[in-house]
Design a protein around this nucleic acid. Sequence first.
DNA 1: CCGTATCCAATAAGATACTG
DNA 2: CAGTATCTTATTGGATACGG
Lengths: 218, 218
Amino acid sequence: MSFDPAPRRRYEDACGAAHGLELLGDRWTMLVLRELMLGPRRFSSLRSDLPGISARVLTQRLAELEERGVVRRVTLPPPASVQAYEATEWGLEAEPILQELGRWAARSPSHDPSLPVSAVSIILSFRTMIVPERAAGLDRRFGIEMGDQQFVGRLEGGALSFAQGADDEAEFVIRGAPENFAAVVYGGAPRELVEIEGDVAAAGEFLSLFTLPPKVGA
Amino acid sequence: MSFDPAPRRRYEDACGAAHGLELLGDRWTMLVLRELMLGPRRFSSLRSDLPGISARVLTQRLAELEERGVVRRVTLPPPASVQAYEATEWGLEAEPILQELGRWAARSPSHDPSLPVSAVSIILSFRTMIVPERAAGLDRRFGIEMGDQQFVGRLEGGALSFAQGADDEAEFVIRGAPENFAAVVYGGAPRELVEIEGDVAAAGEFLSLFTLPPKVGA
DNA sequence: CCGTATCCAATAAGATACTG
DNA sequence: CAGTATCTTATTGGATACGG
């Protein structure tokens, strides 16, 4: 076992949550991991979806996450053949942390949903905020496209899953900026803010599967 | 006096998780909240269960949490009539965040369970690590005592709950240092490390309800 | 005992420029 | 594009002193 050269600040606390904070608790770390939850990403793609992060800090965070076994560097398959970062299996298992954090904070009076939001954030929010009773029994394949980021979604017996990429068998595809998805799904904005291709009724049904928790005091 | 002269660093990100990190993501903040999960605590009690925190930082964190509506200052009922801090209802709802963080980090190869641990951490770990199938159908009232901190526990139809205090109707009481509870429950150490009063069989059964998730790679 | 206030040194983060 | 290097600023933690 190698001695950590720069003895990272620890909590000296056996509590699992304390160790979790040692692994993921530095500024930006969980948000970097969030962006990796749906598949490998390149450095500049991460940077552009994490507004305000500096190249230096992103480099550091990726290196730390790699050292801790949460993230690994990969070479994307040909023809791309470029370097990227992806979450390890264990890294992907951190999704419930982000979900609980998001679910809890969505009740905050100080939460401002009008801020910019990344494509991955929106997709992950669907997994968090889905109302199981509304999704029960539905079986769908569809596409979500935001800018140049494409995702395939599947709804199978109430379970909702996503991955990067496209699906030829999609029943519908919804396109729009992440902010517009947020406005339509959570803000009650008209559906015209997003573009729907294919089965419009099924797409509309999909866009109605989600709900935010009530604000504190409401 | 002025605790917020500089505008707090935000993420400028509508993602709920990002806002959660703005609320709870500073160093020590979640651990302070953890210590409040089972009832009000005094400043010095918090400080002694958060080894390494400075009075200054604890003061700051409590003030920030209060400002954000997560914690409030209270005066304990007579005859104590002293000041303390307690989590608000919404603050208590953050428990699943700590649970997921702890559950995830317990799988880390770098997790060191031999470090010191607070009484509250142990109690919360019981709620996280309980194996529902083992607890199903059990109905118990009991006490847990670590140093001068007393807790009452209830197991009702698989649900495990705790609060500060004592219970005259307890079927058993288990006493010991938090580290010894950890060793017995999670480390397979002999039960003699903790002291059992009352129904020894029921206490032994209770101590066997919990299990840690497997380490990564195991 | 329960904090608050101040000062100081060590880190971490942010901004910006730059290189292979 | 994918980072480094460098400089500046902010935050942290430690020590200590102080008031209720």
